[in-house]
Amino acid sequence: MKRSGYKVEAVEFSYSYGGVPALKQVSFGVKQNSLFTIMGPTGSGKTTFLKALNRLNDLVDQTSRSGRLLLDGKDVYAKDVDVADLRRRVGMVFAMPTSLPMSIFENVAYGPRKRGVKSKAVLEETVEKALSAAALWDEVKDRLDMPAQRLSGGQQQRLAIARALAVQPEVLLLDEPTSGLDPVSTLRVEELMRQLAGSYTIIFVTHDPQQAARLDGEVAFLFMGELIELGTAREMFTRPRDKRTEDYITGKVG
């Protein structure tokens, strides 16, 4: 299956909304269990890439695409792909920390429960594991029945990560997950990403070059729908090959 050896791979992938291109023939690959950062300014196509990969963009009218977008070597737009199953395999965390209007426990348990897990013991174990993995367990273990929306923004974002982890995804997409968080919560989430990268394939979208540098994985720089540069954070931030990359990371554009 994995001819290329990549977990996620875009092959000359283009995507447009109502005729306006958002991604133009983008090609890159993401290795299994690695931390991959997509960096770029607003409107560069970062979110489009994520929402194309888990097909949340299916909800948008009048889109078109070309090229291929592969998960384990199989096009996610192939006819026999079960979208709900795809979204289980490819979890997503959004920019705005959003807790569903239920208790902390139910927020995390919803996904597994929906997949037919009925046993209370199994659910409790799954929830504890997910919350621990998201570094939230110690803060909430005594109040799992509390409405999740009473948590702080940083806690709600880690809860969103726990919720995504609870369905045991293979790939985790994060769309500027720290844009609404204070610096301390931001660093906690980044630390968490480096820990999780050992067991999940993580695609982290950010507009912040410094955050991309701190995350220290592979980086793709997108600009106006085009892939400008691809490489490790170290290379890109010490010796950018493209003038536009240099301008962006030194704060001259974007």
């Binding site: 888990n54 949340l56 909800l59 709900a84 199953d85 795809l86 979204r87 289980r88 979890g91 997503m92 959004f94 705005m96 959003t98 569903l100 209007p101 919803y110 996904g111 929906k114 997949r115 969103a160 919720r163 995504a164 369905v167």
Partner: peptide, 14 residues
């Protein structure tokens, strides 16, 4: 909020 729907769909809910 639309965010509720997005989050649910991203969890694989119909």
């Amino acid at each position: 909020p639309q965010a509720y729907r997005d989050n649910m769909l991203a969890l694989g809910a119909t």
